Amino acid sequence: MSLHLVFVTSLVAQANPSTGYELANQALLEGLARAGVRTTVIGCTWPGQAVAPGAKAALGEVEVRTDRADPWLKIKWLLMSLATGLPMSSAKLRVIDEEAVRDAIASAGPFDGYVLNGVALAGAFPDSFTGKPSIFVAHNVEHRSSAENARNAGSLIKRSLFARDARLLKTIEHRLRDQSSGVVTFAAEDAVDLGVPPERSVFLPLSIERSTQLPETKELAHDLALLGTWTWHPNRIGLEWFLNEVKPRLLDDVHIRVAGSTPIDLVSAWPDVDFVGKVDRATDFVAESAVIPLISRAGTGVQLKTIETFSLGLPSVATTSSVRGIAAIPDNCTIANDPESFASALNDKIRRARAGDLQRLDGRVFAETQAQLMDAGIRQMLDMLTRTTSGAKEALS
């Protein structure tokens, strides 16, 4: 008998996924489908954002993007967070009526359990997703990321708010950990940080199906391509480190292009960097680059842009943080953590690419290995859930 699971997520599948969270959601839903699981997704969508074919935003449109919010909306979020005692990510979702959440669950029909995909929605409505076995998918160790944000924040107010969020997120993460049949993490060390017992922990390497085919490159358009959601604070920390510490040590004529949502103050501060905003085809964008800098300096979880880079066989220079959760590092990736070594490795790879040595590999081996490991992790997750389901039925009989 196939399982029917309710997939609880703050954001339903988008027509053109771009952020790491969206790509991870897509990969997870595709993995469940390969395993023969039927899913009903409960979540919302961003205003004006098209959803993927077949997807449905059961909870309507909700604006949660800080870079799109005006000052009054940010104040409203803060007041809601203070009033509810919830971290900001969950407080933003309290504009949804709890009755609408219950109706969405009821409309799913009979189902076997929940996949609690991240902290935000499950944290916003703690009493709604109960009564069935659940799996908690921890994309990151959210409380640790917020604590890192607090240490890197520029003002006392921001430091205080991030520190408060860290305390609240830790409470929610531990509650979801304890009430779930098992906890899925995309980096094995995250399970340790969350205090998950080994017998209830599943390490799930992610496989991104869109990343296995590299378009033919006729001519390189730029030396370095950086792609990400730079409005997310942990990503911004990495980008600021790269621009402030690494860039001054690069070749004088290096051409850098940055794609994705970027805070306006960074765009204006670096006029010699080509900020191009959102790109239609991320694969085409990175394929036109000589080298990919993987610059994570903060956060937890796995870096989806790293998996994409390796799956495409592109040469890269990466920090240790950028390759967490990945066991097999390709030969054309150099690991460097200090600005001098990072810049030196980039300069060497740029010179080689300009001389005609593109240093590209067949990424299919990496991609296929990731897919096999992911499918094995999905089976382990489902076994964990079905054992709990069977135990509950036996207790009732």
Rank of each mutant, 00 (worst) to 15 (best):
S2G: 03
V6L: 12
S10L: 06
S18A: 10
T19L: 05
T19R: 10
L23Q: 14
L32Y: 14
A33Y: 12
R34E: 14
V41K: 01
P47W: 09
V51Q: 04
G54D: 03
E63I: 00
L73Y: 08
L78Q: 13
L78I: 06
L86W: 13
S90P: 11
L93C: 08
V95F: 14
E99Q: 10
I105D: 11
A108Y: 11
G109S: 02
P110M: 01
F111R: 01
V115S: 09
G118P: 08
V119F: 14
A120V: 02
L121K: 10
S128L: 05
F136C: 04
V141S: 05
N149G: 12
L168R: 12
L169Q: 15
K170L: 01
L176F: 08
L176G: 06
V183Y: 13
G195R: 01
P198W: 02
R200T: 01
L206T: 11
E209K: 11
Q213P: 01
E216G: 10
W241G: 05
L243M: 08
P248E: 01
H255T: 07
S261M: 09
V267I: 14
A290Y: 10
V291Y: 02
I292G: 05
L294H: 02
G301R: 03
I307R: 08
E308G: 10
G313C: 04
P315Y: 04
S321N: 13
S344G: 10
A345H: 07
K349C: 00
I350C: 07
I350H: 03
R352N: 08
R354G: 11
R354A: 07
G356S: 07
D357T: 01
G363Y: 10
T369K: 14
D375W: 08
A376S: 15
D383V: 00
R387F: 07
